[in-house]
């Protein structure tokens, strides 16, 4: 049992995109604020703080997670993946990110991190999704710029590419 007092900061250790990191948090500190303002991972954005817009979506221990509906204290010891961990290298984009760029699947880019995290998580588990499945998945995200269809197209194209590259790897 661990009990954190309300008026103190407590050390929180997590693995962030594969790197062990630590920061201090009050019991009431939201994971979104902890990531952004304590760990400096500002790629995860905050749009509503009541779990509707999806901008703050990250992956915690393999689970899609609204970081605004999660306390930093809850993820102590967990593995967290955020948008900063998606690209294979600092100067290179991953397959999904490239598809987004090709399809103009973002405009202001504010909601994009959450959408990418949902898709990255989903496509790893569902390599051949239908358009309806992608639309169902992404109905948990709000985007005000794109009208969504370029996002759907990018997701479907990335899924096909990922599936074929996996196939090539297993054929080899």
């Amino acid at each position: 049992m661990s009990r954190f007092k309300s008026d103190a900061r407590h050390p929180i250790h997590v693995s962030l995109n594969g790197e062990p990191v630590a920061g201090e948090a009050e019991p009431r500190t939201l994971l979104s604020d902890f990531l952004r303002h304590r760990l400096g991972a500002t790629g995860t954005h905050v749009g509503c703080e009541h779990g509707v817009c999806g901008a703050c979506t990250v992956v915690v221990d393999g689970m899609l997670t609204r970081s605004c509906l999660t306390l930093a204290a809850q993820v102590d010891g967990c593995e967290i993946r955020t948008v900063e961990g998606l690209a294979p290298a600092a100067d290179r984009l991953g397959v999904l990110q490239q598809a987004f760029r090709r399809h103009h699947a973002l405009q202001c880019g504010f909601c994009t991190a959450g959408i990418l995290m949902s898709l990255d998580h989903y496509l790893a588990r569902n390599p051949a999704p239908t358009e309806a499945e992608i639309r169902d998945l992404l109905s948990g995200h709000l985007c005000r710029c794109t009208g969504y269809t370029p996002i759907i197209q990018a997701a479907l194209e990335a899924a096909a590419q990922l599936a074929s590259s996996k196939k090539e790897t297993s054929d080899a």
């Binding site: 049992m1 009990r3 309300s6 604020d33 204290a73």
Partner: peptide, 12 residues
């Protein structure tokens, strides 16, 4: 829009 202060107990 931040939560009020509370204690947090992680039960095992």
């Amino acid at each position: 829009m931040k939560p009020p202060a509370f204690d947090y107990l992680r039960a095992e």
